[in-house]
Amino acid sequence: MLDKYINKLRFFLKFFFTDEETDAIVYDYKELIYEKKMSGETDEQIILGIGKISENIKKIIHENHYFNPRLLLHNNYFTVLVVFLLRFLIERLFISTYEDYRNIIYIYCLLSNILFSFVTYYLIRGNPFNINIFLKNTVCVTIPYCMVLIILTMTLFIILFSFPMNFIDLYQKYFDNLFQILHIAGYIIGLAVLVSFKDRTVATLLTIIIGGFSTFVFFILSQVHIINQTSNIIFYKYISLLFVINLCFILVCVFLRDKKIYEHAV
């Protein structure tokens, strides 16, 4: 009962505080609970005395802050959103400005994937093992993002294999945009995995592999496409395939993570 209380407290604190701050606060609460227990209070009495988690969170925020922008930066979900927006804006800006230099832009994507992975790692590093956090992250973050990617990938497949060539020619620019969305969706899932992963170092490496690999392959494919002047349909088939591979990569990561949690829980 008390463990559940502490886990919940930790989960919500992480939305507002850095990992170090969260650990310090949780340690204090653990000490308080222990001392109250030693003085003969029951679990129910202790929880009643400490108060509701939501009220405690409000109190802690009020007592510790003043508005601190650093807090927002340390919020996992906010970080993911910022990284997503940054990547989207920068890539769109580059592609719309330098249409003729797409290949260079894709090299940039490769480098930025690696850079952003490191930046994100430092921003959201460290998250003590907690099954509740993982379950909530899986339900609230990973699964929805995976669903988005699956839906988008399936849509692309259906469009590519159902419509005649002239349709694709007509909407080539539209597909470019769709690719961008897919690319970003893939990246978000990488980040989502990163956020909910227990071992951040492994997660970072996986994100780099996923993001970097997809961009690199896309760059190679675009080169092949230009050299061989292959038809758009083949080109986009490759791209679709790449995203399916990307998706599989991520699902394997999620599976491995959940397996680890399961083994630990057992």
Binding site: I25, D28, L32, E63
Partner: peptide, 9 residues
């Protein structure tokens, strides 16, 4: 208690 802990921190 949370007030005191916050001050300590």
């Amino acid at each position: 208690e949370s007030t005191i802990y916050a001050i300590l921190r």
